[in-house]
Design a protein around this nucleic acid. Sequence first.
DNA 1: CTGGGGAAGGGGCCC
DNA 2: TGGGCCCCTTCCCCA
Length: 289
Amino acid sequence: MDENFHRLQNNEKHQSNNMEQPLDLTITNTKAPFTIEYLTSNIYNPKQKPIYYHQPLPLHSSENQQQHFSMNVSINEHVVPNISSPSTSTNCALEIVNGGHGIKNPLFDCATEALQIKYANSTNHGEQYVCGLCMKTFKLQRLLNRHLKNHSQLKRYLCTFCGKGFNDTFDLKRHTRTHTGVRPFKCDKCEKAFTQRCSLESHQRKVHGLNHPYGYKIRRNKLYVCEDCGHTSTDPTKHYEHIKRFHPYSPLLHRYYDKRQFKFDSNSLLSNKSLSDRSVLSDEDIHIQ
DNA sequence: CTGGGGAAGGGGCCC
DNA sequence: TGGGCCCCTTCCCCA
């Protein structure tokens, strides 16, 4: 498979210690061939035009035979799946998640199916649902189902920078910040910034002696973070306007309207417009923060 | 050895 | 019920 990989002429290797990080996909017992096409952009030189790697990869695995496939991806290349065109009428389409920083693992459905069969001996003792592998107990079936996924090596979402897998888009988003350098949580007492809120609060507690007035597990104010540039806002409308203004090709703008991504209040100008309407908002509508 | 910070696992809660 | 967001916690590394 690797010999088909189209290396660029004068391939941009900016770092001498640039390790090849294969994006591994292991296919188990699936007859469905599919094609991955993708483009890469150079994360060390964002102004450079993305490089389109036309790389159809028909994957045909033999029945009952595990096939291993890896894309050679340099760590300084951000792999963005562009098109997924199944070569048959299967539903093995690649789906972009996390604003283009991740993909849904096309093999995950096979994995979950296998997982459900493998751990079907999980039993219900009264009100408790018990994991058949580690004997942990859960109050709800769905919590057990989610827990079972932690036992699987095959993850639902894959990081397009390094190929690492996660079962949660939030975990993927959090991980992505290690590649993008986005540090949304800034200390107002010094110049330090952190990728996670708990790191900031830990820092402020230990270094500045600040005690946060939050009770145990009390939700903090939501902070909207642009994972492309690190811009933050507590206002969902401004968050949306920022993405539209500075990242007009962000998949976030072209995906379905997700209330979890943009929680506009009912009085917001934007909340009264459909997503398609928003895409043609005039500049006058947009108040740049 | 210790403290600070990065990274991620696990699970509660909301939609 | 599942997906998504978030918090708590732990582990690890490094100065």
